[in-house]
Simulated assay, not measured.
Amino acid sequence: MTRVLVSGGTGFVGRFIVEHLIEHGYDVVIGGRTRAAPDFFSKPVDFAPMSLDPDIDASAAFEAIDSFVHAAFQHVAGRYRGGEGNDPEGFRRANLDGSLHLFRTARDRGVRRCVFLSSRAVYGASAPGAELAEDMLCQPENLYGELKLKAEGALGALSADAFRTISLRVTGVYGAAGVGATHKWQQLFSDYLEGRGVAPRAGTEVHGDDVAAAVRLALETDHRHLHPPVLNVSDLLVDNRTILAIVRDVTGCANALPEPAALADFNAMNTERIRALGWKPGGAARLRQTIENLLA
C-alpha cells in the first residue's frame, strides 16, 4: 500500500484529497501543526507534526513515506491573493522558503513522488478571452501568484528519476466544506435568496474531488515527458447568473438573477494536457448536483 503524506490535509482542498486517496486504497498521513478531530475524516488517518517554518527539521514526518502532496499554505484567513496581510516577508518565508525546505527534505528522505498544489494565479493578466496554457509566459500580479510560481520552478529543479515532481495549477475550488465550516458560495446564496443585489461575476471552477482525482493521477502517471512539469486543473467557466439559476430552480425563489457576465472576455484554462492523461471532471452535472446538495 502506497503511503502518502499530505500537508494541509485538514484544509478545504486538502480534505478532498485525503478522502479521495483513502477511498482509493492509499495509506494517508496528515502533516500539519495540529491533529484533526477524530471524526474529521471518514476513516482514521495517521498524523505527523509538520510546519512551514524553514528552520524546523521535518525529517521525521517523511519516515517511510512514498509520496508527498504539498497542499499547505499559510495565509490570512479567507484570503489567498492578499493573504500576506501586513506581513509579506513572513508570508514569503513560510510559503516559499518553507515549501522548498519540505521539498528538499522529501527528496533527501527517499520520497519518490511529490505533487505541489499551485494556482492559476501564476498566470497573471492576459488578453481578454485568451486561454491559459501551461507553456505560456507567466506574469503573476500579486505575491501569492509570485510565490506559487517560484515554488513550482524550485520543485522542478529538484526533479530526478528517483524524485518525480509535478505542480498542479488549480483554479477556484467548490464543494461541501468540512465539519463546522461554510462553503464558498454561502454568502452568494444568501444574498440571492434574501433579495440583496448580486453583481455579475465570472470564474473558472473545479470540484474538490476532481482536484483530488488530478492529484491521484499525478501520483500514478508517468509524466516525465511533460515540459514544463505542470498541469492546469480546471473544469467550468461559469458566472453568478449560471450558479444562481440552479439555486432558483431548486428553491423556487422568484428573485431576479444577476446580469450575465462577459464570459467571452474571461481567461479560461486549457486542460488538454491533463485530460489526455485520463482526467475527467464532473462538468455541469456535478455543479448542479453539488448546488442541490449544498442547498439541502
Score class of each variant (00 low, 15 high):
residue 156 G to Q: 11
residue 189 F to T: 06
residue 143 L to T: 02
residue 98 G to N: 09
residue 184 K to D: 09
residue 95 N to I: 03
residue 102 L to P: 11
residue 124 G to F: 10
residue 197 G to E: 14
residue 89 E to W: 05
residue 186 Q to T: 15
residue 185 W to Y: 12
residue 185 W to H: 12
residue 120 R to W: 09
residue 159 S to C: 13
residue 165 T to R: 03
residue 179 V to R: 10
residue 180 G to F: 07
residue 194 E to S: 13
residue 188 L to I: 07
residue 101 H to W: 01
residue 107 R to V: 00
residue 205 E to D: 10
residue 192 Y to R: 01
residue 127 A to Q: 13
residue 129 G to S: 08
residue 135 D to R: 13
residue 167 S to R: 06
residue 99 S to D: 09
residue 97 D to V: 01
residue 100 L to R: 14
residue 97 D to Y: 04
residue 93 R to W: 03
residue 185 W to V: 09
residue 152 E to W: 01
residue 187 Q to V: 12
residue 150 K to Y: 04
residue 197 G to S: 14
residue 186 Q to L: 03
residue 167 S to Q: 05
residue 92 R to F: 12
residue 104 R to M: 02
residue 142 N to K: 01
residue 181 A to Y: 05
residue 192 Y to A: 02
residue 174 Y to Q: 12
residue 198 V to S: 02
residue 187 Q to T: 14
residue 185 W to E: 04
residue 184 K to P: 11
residue 126 S to L: 14
residue 136 M to C: 08
residue 148 K to V: 06
residue 148 K to M: 10
residue 129 G to M: 08
residue 109 R to D: 06
residue 130 A to Y: 03
residue 100 L to Y: 12
residue 173 V to E: 12
residue 167 S to F: 03
residue 190 S to F: 06
residue 146 E to S: 10
residue 206 V to N: 11
residue 121 A to E: 14
